[in-house]
Design a protein around this nucleic acid. Structure first.
Lengths: 210, 210
DNA sequence: GTCTATAGCGAGATAGAC
DNA sequence: GTCTATCTCGCTATAGAC
């Protein structure tokens, strides 16, 4: 167990991901992180430069591959000539999120929550970094949706995409706004397949509004 | 302008609402609040006891009436015999949120964002307070939805309600997850009627999935 | 690379004059 | 109720020995 113990920087990254999700950026101190990671307090500043830079590292480590995976799935779907099937297009976003949620270390599932929070909170540390990678993501998906739903006027399409992504981000983040009541919570990030089984029809219904 | 200047406690409440939404609870200091409100630093602790208690006051001041308004609308709709119309049931939640968004002081619109964040973040200060008032809200709406969509099995209904409320909370919170790209943001809390015009059909389509 | 020690700051809270 | 002054604490960051 101690044999293949990861190096200091990796342990900091993993513990930070957990704590940033659980308590938020401001409420997570370097002392909490280094203590729980079993490393020295000064290690964060040595390896990452600052708390701000650490947060960016934590975030980008998963964000960049996620975006890339979505865009690559999208290319594949359109390459197979399924670019006009709305379910197929939606799944190019859902599938990489699903893969993250299944990450055996658990860090992937945590990250989706971090992402959802970061988008909602318009996190000061991520504004430029996000607009760099994320704007092409939105642009690319807008074209794809427009192709799959050609009859919709541009404005209407924007609204439906807005709702669709808002829903999907929150679903994978495991943000159960009704959870306080449920005796046995219905929606859990523990069973991502169940989420998809219910999420996809809901999203598609809203998108096409047959 | 200085003539009907509200009393100290009210000014603190209003400024706090703004700052808590903008920066989050942890990142908002009592010094920021009292400075911007033009009151003395010690005033918060005198009037509210602590920063934690201030947050609860800020939140509950709007949360309690909102829940009450929804439940009262629901009673009215069912009293009118429209309890089986899903649009009507959904609107009993939308309409009070809309009213908040239109609050001339602007504080109401801010609060919806605060609420959405609080639900997502599972805010430590609100856990008991929320489950007190909010659990009856969820319970009551579960019955209402079940009546309007009687053919759905319980599990399926739970999923659809989960998605519907997740969507609505975020829509009114003005959380535009795609905003980074839009040249002219499509979704703005400034035009709440436009939100409803697009939100309601989307939510209903997902709920009924005709 | 890793550690100790500490600088330097800003936080929430309070005592006590007015 | 409102103010000033201050206590105490925890924070990020860094200097410098090892």
């Amino acid at each position: 167990m101690e044999a293949n113990r990861p190096d200091t920087a990796s342990r900091i990254l993993e513990v930070s991901e957990l704590l940033f999700v659980e308590h938020g950026f401001e409420a997570t101190s370097l002392r909490m992180i280094t203590q729980q990671a079993g490393v020295n307090l000064a290690a964060v500043n040595y390896h990452f430069g600052s708390k701000d830079a650490l947060f960016e590292s934590v975030f980008m480590r998963r964000f960049t591959p996620l975006i890339a995976a979505c865009l690559s799935e999208l290319e594949a779907v359109e390459g197979r000539g399924e670019g006009d099937k709305i379910e197929a297009v939606v799944m190019t976003f859902i599938r990489p999120c699903l893969a993250l949620s299944r990450d055996p270390s658990g860090g992937g599932a945590l990250f989706v929550r971090l992402l959802s929070r970061a988008l909602v909170e318009n996190h000061r540390l991520l504004r430029e970094a996000l607009s760099r990678e994320y704007s092409q993501f939105v642009e690319r998906y807008t074209r794809a949706f427009s192709r799959a739903l050609p009859e919709l006027p541009e404005q209407e399409l924007s609204w439906r995409m807005h709702f669709a992504f808002s829903l999907m981000f929150n679903a994978f983040a495991g943000n159960d706004v009704l959870k306080i009541f449920r005796k046995s919570p219905v929606v859990t990030a523990r069973d991502p397949e169940a989420i998809v089984r219910h999420l996809l029809p809901f999203v598609v219904a809203g998108l096409v509004q047959s």
